[in-house]
Amino acid sequence: MKATSMQWQAVVNGKAQEMEIAPSRRLLDILRDDLDLTGTKVSCEIGRCGACMVLIDGQPMNSCLMMAYQCADTEITTIEGLHGETESELHPIQEAFLEEGGFQCGYCTPGMIISTKALLDRTPQPAEQEIKEGLCGNLCRCTGYGGIMRAVESAADKCAHRSSLSPTAGLPMK
């Protein structure tokens, strides 16, 4: 009977990664401990808070729930993989969270931003209810969510504006 291989490979933030790891190892631990991508946060560890949110082939997933074999051969995007037109610039969603006060302690923010990215890629101009549903798996204990809602609305406008100016208009931004 075949057992799942210890050889794991995936593209993380645009870079091919290959390593020997237990197939049941959590993606959260691979990112933080093996790849030193500590922007993905550890919190509830049972899929409730969204602090560990990453994109797997463009879909938001809780990296605390996901085992290595479940995301092998996929494209994984963490908060470190988001940026503006150049790597040193902020992504419009990050800008919006800063400008609108969409965080206080900041611990939930990477997960919030990743979920917002997934939402805006799918629904560029989301209604209030769509924002609430898109971010319902991300919990913030500080802000009361008002700033976060404003940040998502602002991010939608920024992304739409930059997308219209970009020579690759219509393509989702990195």
Binding site: G50, N62, L65, M66, Q70, S115, A118, E133, G137, N138
Partner: peptide, 9 residues
């Protein structure tokens, strides 16, 4: 059931 990210898995 749960949140969108959980429903993806």
């Amino acid at each position: 059931i749960a949140a969108p990210a959980v429903r993806n898995l």
